[in-house]
């Protein structure tokens, strides 16, 4: 499937119609997207911050409870993000800022899987105040850097439409 037919396929259906017909849909979805990103980034700051040693007296096991917060917030942003995309697929799909943003989200996803399968179990046994292993710190730093870039690229989309 090429970008053109993908654009055609995305630009139809209920959500597309609502986004195009109702003037308040776009601002509402944007608001959800911003609230979602704040919750998600906040949850990541708690988890990754603890791993990196900022606030190392935060119980690591308890910090992991913020993982579901991040996942729910990500789901909100996946839905609202899909709404933007369906409103005008071609503009987004051919936009370099959008392409990089999606690419980085995929990388951040793999980074999260690495965290979950490689480090999660070990980390939950960390005592309060105890340093996390080096690999876990690299993953945590990667997570923060990647999501900051995702936010920047998302905000850049209107200006990277060449």
């Amino acid at each position: 499937m090429n970008l053109e037919s993908l654009a055609l396929w995305l630009g139809q259906g209920f959500l597309h119609d609502q986004m195009v017909d109702k003037f308040w849909m776009f601002p509402m979805m944007e608001t959800f997207h911003f609230i979602g990103l704040s919750f998600m980034f906040g949850a990541l700051l708690v988890i990754d911050g603890r791993v990196l040693g900022i606030g190392k007296f935060i119980s690591m096991k308890e910090a992991m409870k913020f993982i579901p917060v991040a996942i729910v917030a990500f789901a909100v942003n996946l839905i609202s993000g899909y709404a933007f995309l369906s409103s005008d697929p071609a503009t987004y799909l051919y936009n370099i800022g959008f392409q990089w943003k999606i690419g980085l989200i995929v990388i951040a996803g793999f980074n999260a899987l690495w965290f979950w399968f490689g480090e999660h179990k070990q980390l939950t046994q960390l005592a309060d105040g105890q340093e996390a292993p080096f690999t876990a710190k690299i993953i945590a730093l990667g997570s923060i850097v990647l999501w900051v870039l995702v936010i920047i690229l998302g905000r850049m989309i209107p200006y990277t439409d060449f």
Binding site: L37, S38, L45, I151, Y159
Partner: peptide, 24 residues
């Protein structure tokens, strides 16, 4: 040309940070 998008992006990153911590 790039001044506005760069400052706007910084505003989004700062928002995610301060709001994220406040919400958590």
């Amino acid at each position: 040309i790039w001044g506005y998008p760069i400052v706007l992006s910084s505003h989004a990153v700062g928002m995610a940070t301060v709001l994220g911590i406040a919400l958590m």
